[in-house]
Simulated assay, not measured.
Amino acid sequence: MLAALLLATAGCSDHRGHDDTATPRSTPTARVAQPSTPPPTPWPIAAARIDRIPGHLPHHDSSLPRTFPPDDAVLPDLLTDPPGRVRMTYHPRESFDDGGGWHTERVFLLGVDGGWRSLEMADLGLPDSSHPGADTYGAGALSPDGSTWAAPTRAGIVMVDLSSARSRAVHLPGGHTSYLAWHPDGRSVEVVRLHGASTQRTWSIDSLSLGVSRSPYLLPIDGFADDGTVVTFARHGAQTLRTVHRGRSQVTDVVAMPYRHARRGGSVGTERILFGLNRELLAVDGRSGAPIARLRLRPVDAAGWPRGWWRPDTVWFYEASRGLITWDVTNGRTRVLTRVRPAVDDGLYWTASVAVDLMR
């Protein structure tokens, strides 16, 4: 799933005997505001403060565990002992070559009761043909309140109610699930699907009815902004256009930052935006796009991947060799939320998902 970060009728089926169908609803064309005049000032990235991750990281107190469980941990079965709500999920280390089927996929889930449980994906009864194939599978995506877990299949996604352990598969148009993200209100989950060789489209699934509709945008890899909008970036000549999608309406303006930094989208907070670059994270002002600070990774650090805003001045991100880390973009302080132990070898990857309403 991590490497994959890249009509029609949709149906859903309950793997305990229930079977429904849903037809994607058509999307009306939204009116788009004309871009404003581009800001006259240049983009002063050289003036941004440069931070680095120290060799020793202090702990950041939170409701998350200090460490992930060992990859070979023997844990209670989620399906026979559902916790009601889950604070975090963790997929043990895997490689891009893994593709043996559902029997190879195992996800750990931390209940709000403090106990870890294990979900053997083969126990959900999904057909072998629905396994995504070679690549890392990932830890899926927890709803903000931790009540539902969603994960990719070749045909769409599977959703598991964490109170009843009931699983439901939702089939979507397209040939492959690229990634998915929950809306901050928890009422829907959006899924980006590959159509044909290179076209990606976003589908929205109602978390209660499982009704499916086409979204009018391509959801960025970092998902929704904190306020529930979707912010996308596009190139228009030498300019970078920012479009804020709110429901079916769109408003577009011009930001000063170069498109090469914004083309993959960013994690949009209430005041700032975080972009993940090759070997650093970049925080910019949410209104003007002016650079604030850059967090450069050391040569011994693994890839850094933005996960979201812990609070308006602090982001949290994935650093493969050490775990989940926070970075205060105002003073440069970095701390670790949850460590992965032992450190990850090259070629192996772990992933985690967190219920954002339960993590602080």
Rank of each mutant, 00 (worst) to 15 (best):
L2N: 09
L5H: 01
A8D: 12
G11E: 11
H18P: 00
D19K: 05
D20Y: 05
T23N: 07
R25C: 09
R25Q: 14
T27V: 11
A30C: 13
V32F: 11
Q34E: 09
T37I: 12
P39F: 03
T41D: 13
A46W: 02
A46T: 09
A48M: 05
A48Q: 06
A48F: 03
H56S: 12
H56G: 02
P65A: 15
P70F: 08
L78N: 04
L79S: 05
D81Q: 15
D81E: 14
Y90K: 08
R93Q: 14
G100C: 04
G100I: 00
G101V: 10
W102E: 02
H103V: 02
G111Q: 13
V112G: 03
D113A: 06
D113R: 14
G114E: 08
W116S: 11
L119H: 08
E120W: 00
M121P: 06
L126S: 07
P127A: 12
H131P: 04
P132N: 06
G133V: 01
A134E: 13
Y137V: 01
G138N: 07
A139G: 04
A139E: 05
A151S: 14
M159N: 04
M159S: 12
V160F: 04
L172C: 10
L172R: 10
P173I: 06
G175D: 15
S178F: 00
E190A: 09
L194S: 08
S198V: 11
S204K: 13
D206E: 15
L208S: 07
R214V: 15
P220M: 07
D227Q: 13
G228D: 12
G237Y: 10
L241I: 09
V244G: 00
R246F: 01
D253Q: 10
D253P: 02
V255H: 02
V255S: 04
P258N: 10
Y259M: 11
R263F: 15
G266C: 07
F275L: 13
G276M: 02
L277G: 01
R279W: 02
R279I: 00
A283K: 06
P291F: 10
R294P: 07
P299E: 13
D301E: 10
R311P: 00
P312L: 08
P312C: 08
W316Q: 04
E319C: 08
R322G: 05
R322P: 03
G323M: 11
G323C: 08
W327L: 05
W327C: 00
T330P: 06
N331R: 15
T334W: 03
V336A: 07
L337M: 08
R339P: 06
R341L: 15
A343G: 06
G347P: 05
L348H: 13
Y349C: 05
S353E: 04
S353H: 04
V354L: 07
M359R: 14
